[in-house]
């Protein structure tokens, strides 16, 4: 009864959110039509939508999206992969973690964008440096969440391992790693959304394709409609990635679902 009431309330709130969103769009359109808003900067929904339809039609949009997504996936797998591995090692070894903490402390606050000049010098302006920027972005959340996950293994279960005379390997594979999976998954979720939001930064490096490129290209050409199409794609695909990751989480972490 209570649950039903709650989900009903949620439905109403969700509808409210959508109504507000639609309201903003309608207001934007009307204000643009009446000349209250400067459409050369802010464009307006109909123009953006026209542009969108056109770009879907000539397949240019999907090409930009694919270009960005493939960079993001590459960067994510490299960055998050290294983060996971290093996180497991540091989480398992107190000594190494203490040593690493200094470096984590210094390096972590540096935003991925700050590495770009160095990356261009080291790797040139090709794909490599773009993927690396994204990899750096997704490395940190994965590293930190993995360390946290490994370290926060239930002490009671660790003691159970001792009582049952389990060797180190069994303790790691059957107790520590499964315990860390929820935290690792949280890390992966953050890593991929960080990777996606880094794509704009990465495509500042001499790109000729990609959604990030599209936004900057539109700015150079003063085409706000095109710019908004790009921005909207960043947002929409970001949401989509999050939904996919949440579904995946439910599947993978069936035992961890508090219901």
């Amino acid at each position: 009864m209570n649950i039903k009431k709650k989900s009903y309330e949620n439905l109403i709130l969700n509808i409210t959110a959508w109504v507000i969103l639609i309201g903003i769009i309608v207001f934007w359109q009307l204000a643009g039509d009446k000349g209250i808003l400067n459409t050369t900067i802010l464009s307006k929904p109909t123009l953006i939508f026209e542009r969108f339809v056109k770009m879907v039609g000539d397949k240019s949009l999907i090409n930009h999206i694919i270009a960005s997504l493939s960079r993001v996936l590459k960067g994510f797998f490299i960055g998050a992969g290294i983060g996971l591995l290093l996180g497991l090692i540091l989480g398992l070894s107190k000594r190494l973690e203490v040593i690493a903490n200094l470096f984590i402390g210094i390096l972590r606050p540096i935003p991925p964008i700050a590495w770009i000049p160095l990356l261009i010098l080291a790797l040139g302006i090709g794909e490599q440096s773009k993927v690396t920027v994204i990899a750096i972005g997704s490395f940190w959340p994965m590293l930190l969440d993995t360390i946290h996950g490994v370290k926060s293994t239930d002490k009671a279960l660790m003691e159970l391992g001792r009582v049952l005379e389990k060797d180190r390997r069994t303790v790691i594979t059957k107790i520590i790693l499964p315990s860390a999976v929820p935290a690792i998954f949280t890390g992966a979720r953050q890593a991929i959304s960080r990777a996606w939001s880094c794509v704009v930064t990465a495509e500042m490096i001499a790109a000729s394709r990609g959604v990030g490129f599209l936004i900057q290209y539109a700015r150079e050409l003063s085409q706000p409609a095109l710019m908004f199409v790009g921005v909207a794609m960043i947002g929409l695909i970001g949401v989509l990635i999050d939904i996919i990751m949440m579904r995946l989480e439910k599947r993978l972490l069936y035992w961890n679902m508090t219901d």
Partner: peptide, 19 residues
Amino acid sequence: TKPSLDVGVLFQESRLLPW
């Protein structure tokens, strides 16, 4: 000197592997 499988321990919490 150390835990042994010959000594079974049942704790207050069941301490099962939740997964």
